[in-house]
C-alpha cells in the first residue's frame, strides 16, 4: 500500500469518528489531532514542497488567533467575518515577510531563525499593548450558537476540522500536480536552475508562504473558537512552531498525507506514553521523546515511508 492510499484510508476512517465514537475524550483527542494535522500541512506547503524550513509558524497561527479575537472583542465583528479577515491579513503578513526574506535570498538555517525571530517579536509586541490583550491575552465571550461560530456540539467542530484537513491534503495533491507546485518544487531543488527556466523564485516562494500563512492562521481562528481564550505565549511561543514542524517531518516531509499521519502517530504515542507511565510527572514525556528518537532512527523518511513507497522527493536540508 502506498503512502497516499494509506493516508486516504486514514482520512476516510477519521470521518467516521464523530458518528461512531461516543466518548467526549476521544472526540476531543481526535479533534486536536486534526487541528495539528492541518497546522502541520500548512508548514508542509512551505517546508516540504517549498523547502523553506520555518521555525516561526507560530507567527501565522497567532496572527489568525489574535486577529479574530481582537476583531470580535474590540470591534464587535461577527465571528465568521472576523475569522476571514484575520486569515486574509495573516496571509498578507506572510507575503510581506516572504518578500522581505526571499528577496535577500535567505535560506536554510537563516530562514529558519529569522522566522523564529519574527514570531518572538510578535509575541513580545502582542503582550505589550492593552489593545492586543496585554499580558492577559484575549478572551472571546462565551456565546454559544452557530451565528457566533461557537458550537455546543463538538462534533460540528470536528467535522469542520476534518474538512480542513481533507482540504489541506487536496492542496498538497494540487501542489504535486499543478504548474505552480512544479515551479515550487523546482525552486526547492535548484533555485538557479529554476530561474534559468523562467521561474521567478521570489514570486513562487512568496505565494507559497502566503498560502502557508493563511492555512496556519485558519488553525489559529479555529483554536480561538474552540477554546475562546488565547495569550501571546500560547499563540506565538516556540511551542506552536515546533508542533507544526514536528508533525510534518515525523509524518513525511513533502508528502500529501505526511502531516496527517504524523499528527496521528505523535498524538497516539503521547497518549500511549501516558497510559504506560501513569501519573509520575514528566515520565510520559520522557517516553514520548524516546519513541520520537526511535521513530527517526528506524523510519528516516517519516511514517509515510512505513507504507512502502518513498516520498516523491527529499527536500532541501536545513543548511545555509
Amino acid at each position: 500500500m502506498s503512502g497516499k492510499a494509506a493516508g486516504s484510508v486514514l482520512l476516510a476512517a477519521l470521518l467516521a469518528v464523530p458518528f461512531v465514537v461516543q466518548s467526549e475524550f476521544w472526540l476531543s483527542f481526535w479533534l486536536l489531532v486534526l487541528m495539528f494535522a492541518f497546522l502541520g500541512q500548512s508548514w508542509n506547503v512551505l517546508g516540504g514542497y517549498g523547502g523553506q524550513f520555518s521555525f516561526g509558524h507560530a507567527l501565522f497561527f497567532g496572527g489568525g488567533a489574535f486577529g479574530t479575537a481582537i476583531l470580535q472583542v474590540r470591534h464587535g465583528i461577527n465571528a465568521y467575518l472576523a475569522g476571514a479577515i484575520a486569515i486574509t491579513l495573516t496571509a498578507m503578513v506572510g507575503a510581506l515577510l516572504g518578500y522581505l526574506v526571499f528577496r535577500y535570498r535567505l535560506r536554510g538555517a537563516y530562514f529558519a531563525l529569522v522566522t523564529l525571530a519574527f514570531a518572538e517579536v510578535a509575541r513580545v509586541l502582542i503582550a505589550s499593548f492593552e489593545y492586543t490583550g496585554g499580558g492577559f491575552g484575549m478572551l472571546v465571550p462565551l456565546a454559544r450558537g452557530a451565528a457566533n461560530f461557537q458550537f455546543d456540539d463538538r462534533r460540528i467542530f470536528y467535522l469542520i476540522a476534518w474538512t480542513l484537513v481533507a482540504g489541506g491534503c487536496l492542496i498538497a495533491l494540487w501542489l504535486e500536480n499543478s504548474r505552480f507546485g512544479a515551479q515550487l518544487i523546482a525552486v526547492r531543488e535548484n533555485e538557479d536552475g529554476a530561474q534559468a527556466l523562467g521561474v521567478d523564485p521570489v514570486r513562487t516562494k512568496v505565494l507559497a508562504i502566503a498560502l502557508s500563512a493563511a492555512m496556519a492562521a485558519t488553525v489559529g481562528v479555529f483554536y480561538v473558537q474552540n477554546f475562546l481564550f488565547v495569550d501571546s505565549q500560547i499563540a506565538f511561543g516556540p511551542g506552536m512552531s515546533i508542533e507544526a514542524l514536528l508533525v510534518a517531518i515525523i509524518g513525511g516531509v513533502g508528502t500529501a498525507f505526511g502531516p496527517l499521519i504524523g499528527a496521528v502517530v505523535l498524538h497516539a504515542l503521547g497518549e500511549l506514553a501516558k497510559q504506560i507511565t501513569g501519573n509520575a510527572p514528566g515520565l510520559n514525556l520522557v517516553l514520548y521523546g524516546l519513541l520520537l528518537i526511535a521513530a527517526l532512527r528506524f523510519l528516516p523518511s517519516g511514517f509515510v515511508s512505513a507504507f512502502g513507497r518513498r516520498p516523491k522527493a527529499s527536500p532541501g536540508a536545513v543548511d545555509a
Binding site: 515525523i250 520520537l292 527517526l296 528516516p300 536545513v318
Partner: peptide
Amino acid sequence: RDENVLLVTLG
C-alpha cells in the same frame, strides 16, 4: 537528512 537530526535533538 539534516531535518531528522533537528528532530532527534528536539527529542
